[in-house]
Simulated scan of single mutants.
Amino acid sequence: MKQWIGWIVGLLCILLVLKGSWSTTYEVIGDEKTLDIVCTAAEDKGNIPISKILDITNLTFDMAADMETLYFNGNIKVLMDVPSGPIAMEVDIFRWERNSWTPTQLALKRNDLCQSLTSPRELWYPIFRNIPKEELICPPNKGHIYTLKNVSNHEFVRNVPSADIAGDLKALVHLTTGNIKTCAVLFFKVYITKH
């Protein structure tokens, strides 16, 4: 019996240590360069440029008094029919170090992006929760419009594992559905605000 109590106490200690490693809060600030989502030729593994699929030229941003927070407003228009079926997504994260983008070990993969768009557990939930539900059609058809109203580039991601990801980052996003492959790039800064 004493051995079992020892094991239980040991397990509780391990769980407390692990819980502490999950209590990090990150401050994430999207860069104003995010409106230029086009990948370079070297980054792009696609067969259709994102600019032929999405028109974001009607998006504007207003800067808050803190000179970091931006509020995006306007419409994103779909320029072509997207095949029905799952949209696969792969994201690779790079950090700006010594004047070049260095790969990190951080990556994200979703076999069905549409299914995950409205999940509160996803990193992009703060963006998509602000789009009217009747507009959250995925996959979209040609002419569909997503409306952004005061969508902030400034979010806090709480209670996640501690990782060395602070700094200037770039997310290279590859999307695939049917015979369409495209690429988009997003720039942001990450600060660790709490352990």
Results as ranks from 00 to 15, higher is better:
Cys39Thr: 07
Thr193Tyr: 01
Leu113Asn: 01
Tyr125Phe: 15
Leu18Asn: 03
Met1His: 06
Ile180His: 03
Pro103Glu: 01
Asn75Ser: 15
Thr24Ser: 09
Pro140Gln: 12
Leu106Trp: 00
Lys194Phe: 10
Lys149Thr: 15
Thr25Asp: 13
Leu35Pro: 05
Thr34Pro: 00
Asn130Cys: 12
Asp66Ile: 12
Phe187Leu: 12
Asp62Glu: 14
Lys109Ile: 11
Leu70Cys: 02
Thr102Asp: 00
Lys45Asp: 08
Val38Phe: 02
Pro49Glu: 09
Lys19Gly: 13
Cys13Glu: 00
Asp55Pro: 09
Val78Phe: 03
Asn47Ala: 10
Thr57Asn: 11
Met1Leu: 08
Thr147Ile: 06
Ile53Trp: 01
Arg98Asn: 13
Thr147Asp: 05
Thr34Gly: 01
Ser152Ile: 08
Ala171Asn: 01
Asn141Gly: 14
Gly30Val: 02
Thr104Glu: 05
Ala41His: 10
Ser162Ile: 07
Gln105Val: 10
Leu113Tyr: 01
Glu134Leu: 11
Thr118Phe: 09
Thr147Pro: 04
Thr176Met: 09
Pro49Asn: 12
Cys138Met: 04
Ala41Met: 08
Trp101Phe: 08
Asn159Pro: 02
Glu32Ser: 14
Leu11Val: 13
Glu32Ile: 13
Gly46Cys: 11
Met67Glu: 13
Tyr146Lys: 06
Ala184Pro: 05
Ile192Val: 15
Cys138Tyr: 00
Gly167Gln: 07
Tyr71Thr: 00
Gln105Glu: 12
Ala163Asp: 01
Phe72Asn: 04
Val173Met: 13
Ile165Ser: 04
Thr57Phe: 00
Met1Asn: 10
Glu122Tyr: 02
Ile50Phe: 04
Asn179Cys: 05
Phe187Arg: 14
Ile53Lys: 04
Lys52Cys: 08
Ser23Tyr: 00
Glu32Gly: 04
Thr147Trp: 01
Leu18Ser: 11
Thr40His: 01
Trp7Phe: 15
Arg95Gln: 10
Ile180Pro: 01
Leu175Pro: 02
Glu68Phe: 07
Gly143Arg: 07
Tyr26Gln: 07
